[in-house]
Write a protein that binds this DNA or RNA. Structure first.
Lengths: 244, 244
DNA sequence: CGACGAATTGAGCGGCATCAATACTTGTGG
DNA sequence: CCACAAGTATTGATGCCGCTCAATTCGTCG
């Protein structure tokens, strides 16, 4: 097999794709670009016409508020479709920075247009995945709006854990977070100091353990309880989609 | 003109539609259903296969956490497309309740499938609008995660204001919120008590004024500053979409 | 007029922020 | 391979924003 499309691979986890569709998706990834850890891929408020497929590494999207504080909006993993905001806005609503060395595949939004025109079923699928991301956002909204610091940390860890598991079957109960405590805090609306206290507390309570950057979830059930977490990946149902 | 489609009308604000497309969209609204204020349209965790177009009134989506607290996820206005989560999940991730007497047009997700198959351009458009809603969610995420109570109230009022203005040209500087202070609080992660204090304070500072349920924004510019609000409606750009 | 939900106001408290100091880790150049 | 620098983690002390509890007042609808 030649250069598989990372993105097609992601999509086929949900719905089988035709060869033509796979080929079209692979075309989006014709221009891989290596990105150094910490490098900015897109800067908020600057004009944009590009979208990305993330092939390797991790990327985050965030905004900086006028007082200098940062809200991390989402952490992206390989196979994710990044920067879909540029489909509607002429200026980037959010910044994109690589959390680790990464490989992204940029493509012009006109390439997306062609894809949508020629492969309506892919268009429908993108619509659905966009909805899934929206639901994921609402979960975080409820977490930030209505739960305690400890609950947010628990929910955040579980979210990362389950999202990583979707593409990586090796993960059993531990994973590399690759985020500083400050970054965790900026994701869930806390200071790094308080994130530290919460993590430390959860460690003492035997909920998690750490070594190097690796986090092990020792009691997923109790964590889900503390974080009011619901795993949405389970009851996805895309069978009603147009057949290929 | 016969029964215009509320939804088609909303879409044409962004991109011109062909007659065939309009007709197809109108079909989604063939079964209007009247809903009483406070009535539940969809209950979280129950099986769903229906989506809705909101034709009249206001509807909110929300979740209830195990401790009984509520997070309101979004307030919907006429012309909005509701319940798109049911395109991916077999069980509703969120509840839907009418905030006022309302008219919704339910349709089966298989009707949506047919629409997506037969009108790929509409599929693309739905994808884009879903992205817009996602961006709107990220704005609220930053608001909840990183701003003060006062800032959240300001941002919330501005958001309602600008969204209402999209469809109602009569609105100049005042509007009917039709939400209790408790509901505002549940939207932005505050208690009704504190929402009251903030509103009251903003009133004293001459930022807003109230009479009955009507809110008047006296100093939009300063409100935008306080709320760190950015009006996204301005720089939408959908011109690159497939031509009809 | 009575009743119930919503708004308003006060008192007191607690969770998380802020500020600050110290340890640890990692990468870099000599 | 060591030494330093810079970033990250950890811990303590203190303070404030927004929550909780509670008591009126206001508004609206039957």
């Amino acid at each position: 097999m030649v250069a598989t499309s990372c993105f097609a691979e992601q999509l086929t986890r949900h719905v089988p794709l035709s060869d033509a569709e796979k080929t079209a998706l692979t075309k989006l990834e014709e221009n891989p670009r290596k990105i150094k850890r910490g490098a900015m891929i897109q800067r908020a408020n600057e004009p944009i016409t590009e979208l990305f497929v993330l092939r390797e590494g991790r990327v985050m999207s965030f905004v900086i508020l006028p007082d200098g504080s940062r809200q991390i909006l989402r952490v992206y993993f390989p196979g994710d479709f990044i920067g879909s905001a540029s489909t509607i806005y002429s200026r980037a609503p959010e910044s994109l920075v690589a959390l680790s060395d990464a490989v992204v595949c940029p493509f012009d939004k006109h390439a997306l247009r062609r894809l949508l025109e020629e492969h309506p079923r892919v268009a429908a699928l993108l619509f659905l995945l966009s909805n899934a991301e929206r639901v994921s956002m609402t979960d975080r909204l409820a977490s930030l709006g209505r739960t305690s610091a400890k609950a947010r940390v628990a929910a955040f860890l579980l979210d990362m854990f389950h999202r990583l598991r979707v593409t990586d079957d090796n993960i059993k109960d531990s994973f590399e977070l690759k985020l500083t405590q400050e970054e965790i805090g900026d994701s869930i609306g806390l200071t790094s100091v308080h994130v530290n206290r919460m993590i430390r507390q959860m460690e003492q309570e035997g909920l998690i353990s750490r070594s190097n950057g690796r986090i092990t979830l020792l009691d997923v059930e109790r964590l889900e309880d503390i974080g009011h977490y619901t795993n949405r990946h389970k009851d996805m149902d895309l069978d009603w989609l147009p057949a290929s």
